[in-house]
Design a protein around this nucleic acid. Sequence first.
DNA 1: GCTCAAGGCCAT
DNA 2: ATGGCCTTGAGC
Length: 352
Amino acid sequence: MTTAPTLKPLLVAAESRNKDRQRGADRAGYGHGLAGLTWGTGVPVPLGFFKRTVQNKKSYQCAASSNCPVDKAGRKRCPRCRFAKCLQQGMKIEAVREDRMRGGRNKFGSYYKRDRAQRMQRSSLKDSTVTDLAGMEQTVTSRLYCLLHKWPRWEPFSFCVSAVEDNLGQLVAWAKAAPYFRELEMADQMQLLHASWAAVHIADFAYAAVIGAIPASIKMNNGLEVPSGLAAVMGDCSLLALWTEIVHLLASRGFTRVDLAAFRYLALFHEDGECRVENRALIRAARDSLMRCWGEYRGSDVALLPQFTAFLRIRSLAQSCQNFLITRRVGGVVGSSLLAEMLSSVQVTCAR
DNA sequence: GCTCAAGGCCAT
DNA sequence: ATGGCCTTGAGC
């Protein structure tokens, strides 16, 4: 069986996307005192509206009570509230020139500079705290919910495989943007993903199950009710009991989105993935940083212990799930080439 | 010289 | 009226 090289192109694509985004962020400048504005780079911003309003000394009246919602859709409804929002967001009337002189610089140069420096500091700080990283996890539950309702559900097993594949796709994009991970060489990135994808998948479902974001069971088109945890354990009914046990354990200890973020990073940078990687120092640094942040969040290192054992159980469950998929020969028969590649890498590991 | 935020223009 | 794109020019 030959597997198409699927993971690498995905990583390459994610990398170029991230670079584009970074370039966009770097290019984002200032407009009338407000940070994050650009001319002609596709970021829609009410520069023209603000400029005209100030230049022509317009004064608008609000038909309602001066608290109209100003969003992309309703922005044209009430100019008064739109202008108020501009000011509230930090746009400066003084930055619209009275004499209408073009070009050159205005007196805000130093303010822009300071603001830029501050924003830079904030973004680098962000890299080192789990709490901020947890922002990414908010989307997990809604995604899993969609995922469970996405396909025509004729057969439980192929349904579970589809769920796994769908989750795999986003995992790559997430990891590629993750601090530390994005600094690694491509080969190392592949190693870590091969070793962690299954545990991340289960952790995602565990979180969604604990907070009740997904239904307990899914109704197949043939009338059969299937527990949604089956998608978490990738279709292996014999693992369902273990799965529910872990979910209950996590629920009793408390499992927040910060904990989920920690689980995901823990899986990604776990020792098991380390054996064949080049840059062990960076991965160890990532783990240290993670444990420090997570410990701070939980209050103490001791408080992490039960969480950590739960994580280890998820990892061993993940191993069982992978073995199950291999015995079902998903890689060759049902699964996408990406899933096949993930599974074949496990087989290589086992053979050694 | 180059940058990049400000003004102007004009199709919508 | 709006907003995308082009031109300008003081400060670095």
